[in-house]
């Protein structure tokens, strides 16, 4: 399992549009992808899960990938976070 810590920079937090894009990106990998905030962990391939975190600007989230292609997934998705959130 791999993990990546990230602090949200977008002042709107993880709102619908980037959340949708993230789900799309995560869906491209066979491994398990999750996001944790304040001890609550959700499936990053599920839009309601991600939006339900209510992650806001300045808060830390942890991206985890586990299974097949986990390294590749972590690299792609962490880059996605840096660029979009």
């Amino acid at each position: 399992m791999k993990e990546y810590r990230f602090v949200i920079k977008d002042k709107m937090g993880i709102h619908a549009r980037p959340a949708g894009l993230l789900v799309k990106e995560a869906g491209k990998f066979p491994c398990k992808v999750t996001i944790e905030k304040d001890g609550k962990e959700v499936d990053a391939k599920r839009i309601f899960g991600i939006m339900g975190l209510g992650a806001k600007c300045g808060q830390e989230i942890i991206l985890r990938t586990d299974g097949e292609q986990e390294e590749e997934a972590l690299e792609t998705l962490s880059k996605f976070l840096e660029e979009n959130m």
Binding site: A16, R17, A19, G20, D43, K45, R46, I47, F48, G49
Partner: peptide
């Protein structure tokens, strides 16, 4: 595109396994 994106999100919501 920015305003249209919501409909893409709606499609994902329809597919969301939890839902």
């Amino acid at each position: 595109e920015i305003n249209a994106a919501i409909f893409e999100v709606h499609q994902m919501m329809l597919e969301d396994p939890d839902y």
